[in-house]
């Protein structure tokens, strides 16, 4: 068990190193230097030259990379040229927004998907099952950003039920109304994300339930006289809970990728929107940091899922 986890983590290390080199080189290849835009056009070229020199921009790339890594381990990701503040502080402020939204979406996804999956499996081949299958199929096929745009149009603008921009309203004061306002702002993107992200969990749970229906332990429980409702709730559902929980790790990747779209549509100040804005300002310290953070979060999500799955299913442990 521990061996598997250790091996899994050891495999991760070269991946992170390659990712960091790749990200660094891509950032270097971006057009413009970091001082573009922040300097008065009348500035002396000599002065810019001097600035470039003291910032180490003339060093060979591996030296620059090494400096960058050393700074990274000191928690120093450099300064944002656009916002003129340390990248760590800038991203720290935005990360909370993104993570809250992702967490809320994930909780809602499970809340929608678990009952649907069990119900569809229980009534296999009947009308509810067909309806749920069509529903998951439709939600899976439509590109998510189209749903976001339609959702904000209908519920945000036409009906005016939900806010259409920001993460908190400016009039909120006091902790209760602050939390309330924050929650209100993530409600619509969260619900849309959850309604359209159920397909994996529902399909997995449905087939698990169908498999379990014919298994020995269910037949034993039935012959003992356990009520049907309790069999589904306590025996079958409990059994498929861990693999379902493992989906949480994988879905982090999807949620993070989706956050770029969600936050752009809802002008929600999280990491995704920060990334899109930084791209247009060529703010490459921020871009590098964000790509690295997203990559590492993806990696941790996969790691989490793999560990849970290897606990559940000994066959997939790496030997």
């Amino acid at each position: 068990m521990w061996k598997t986890i250790l091996r899994r983590i050891l495999i991760m290390i070269p991946e992170v190193i390659i990712l960091s080199i790749l990200v660094f080189l891509l950032a270097k290849a971006m057009p413009g230097d970091p001082f573009t835009g922040s300097i008065n056009p009348k500035a002396d070229p000599q002065q810019i030259h001097h600035l470039m020199k003291i910032n180490g921009l003339y060093d060979p790339w591996y030296q620059q990379y090494w400096h960058w890594v050393v700074h990274l381990f000191h928690g120093n990701l450099g300064n944002s040229y656009q916002y003129q503040e340390p990248v760590t502080r800038l991203i720290g402020g935005r990360a909370a927004n993104t993570l809250w939204l992702a967490l809320f979406t994930m909780i809602l996804t499970y809340a929608f998907a678990l009952p649907m999956g069990v119900y569809a499996g229980r009534h296999e081949g009947k009308l509810p099952d067909t309806i749920i299958r069509v529903y998951t199929y439709v939600t899976y096929c439509i590109p998510f950003f189209v749903i976001l745009v339609l959702g904000i149009w209908i519920f945000g603008y036409v009906f005016g039920w939900f806010p259409t921009t920001g993460s908190i309203s400016s009039s909120a004061s006091g902790w209760l109304s602050t939390i309330g306002s924050r929650f209100y702002h993530i409600l619509l993107p969260g619900i849309l994300g959850a309604l359209f992200g159920t397909v994996n969990i529902v399909q997995y749970l449905r087939s698990e339930v169908i498999d379990a229906k014919g298994s020995d332990y269910v037949r034993t429980a039935r012959s003992k006289g356990v009520p049907s409702k309790d069999i589904y709730r306590h025996h079958i559902f409990r059994n498929s809970l861990l693999p379902i929980a493992a989906f949480a790790g994988y879905s982090i990747t999807g949620l993070l990728n989706g956050s770029i779209f969600t936050e752009t549509v809802f002008s929600y100040p999280g990491m995704g929107l920060l990334f899109v804005n930084s791209i247009s300002y060529r703010d490459y310290t921020v871009i590098t940091a964000l790509v690295l953070i997203y990559g590492i979060l993806n990696l941790l999500g996969t790691l989490l899922s793999d560990i849970i799955l290897s606990i559940v299913d000994p066959r997939i442990r790496i030997e």
Binding site: L26, N257, I260, F275, I279, V291, Y294, G295, N298
Partner: peptide, 12 residues
């Protein structure tokens, strides 16, 4: 699989 795809495409 680990690469944040949308971000990488935008950077490229």
């Amino acid at each position: 699989m680990m690469l944040p795809m949308t971000m990488m495409i935008i950077v490229l």
